[in-house]
Amino acid sequence: MDPRFTLTGIRPAPPPPTPSRQRAARRPVPAAAMLAAIVLGCLFFPPFLPKDPSYLDLYHANTAPNAEFLFGTDAMGRDLFSMVWYGGRISLLTGFLSTAISAAAGILLGTASGLAPRWLDGLLMRLTEIFLSIPGLLPAILLQAALGKASVLSLSTVLGLTGWAEIAKAVRTEVRQLRGSAFVTASRCMGGSPFHILRRHLLPNFLPAILFMLVMRFRSAVASESTMSFLGLGLPLELLSWGSLLSLSERSLLSGAWWAAVIPGVFLAATLLCVTELGSGLQTAGQYGPSGL
């Protein structure tokens, strides 16, 4: 008899292959590298810069980029190369501070709204909706105009206070969804306290979802700061940021000194773009399965 036709019965199945992704998810490596370069540059360059960014070298006003002034000088003769690195510090700091404020307010309100009874939730969300439809910079400008002369802290607070609504809304949506999910019910049945549920079930599940929002908030805050400083409503000229740097550039343009407008702007735009790329890398909602259409 053919030995291959002997009854062998059940033999252990070969172990299922560990699902290893062949193609790694799109990781924004270049964007991360560039952002790191800009941020590290802003943090560590300033002490080693040869020129004082606040020194008014009127003799060299509006000099085009050359060996001495790498990025040229502005209408007041300040060295743009030093200013860009110094300005980045303040811009990034403002962005970071205001994001922290927005995040704290948004997460607090969003979680409260998500866990609140329906009427309170409705009220809070109505408020958030109205807040959302207010054009972003308008309340910030009014508030800052009312507060008077701006400092980094006051500007961050103003921007932070006007940016919580989207975060609150996203957190609330997540919390509402999670709250109704079976595993939270299961934990409640087991006797998990609200704090336990918040810590073990809600936070780990909604934090990754709003990480994207936080990154985007940072981007908006940096952009808003520069816009406001540009309009002369934000940081004063002597407090160097990318925005206040650019607020003089309108005049430089007409005198043909394009570099004063273009170079700091390129830094600003590049930072914003890198942050956006990083954010999209974190986003999970934007990834779709194969289409059926």
Binding site: R219, S226, L231, E250, A261, A269
Partner: peptide, 11 residues
């Protein structure tokens, strides 16, 4: 969408 409006205006 990443370029600030005011800067784009300048350019």
């Amino acid at each position: 969408s990443c370029i600030p409006e005011f800067w784009l205006s300048l350019i």
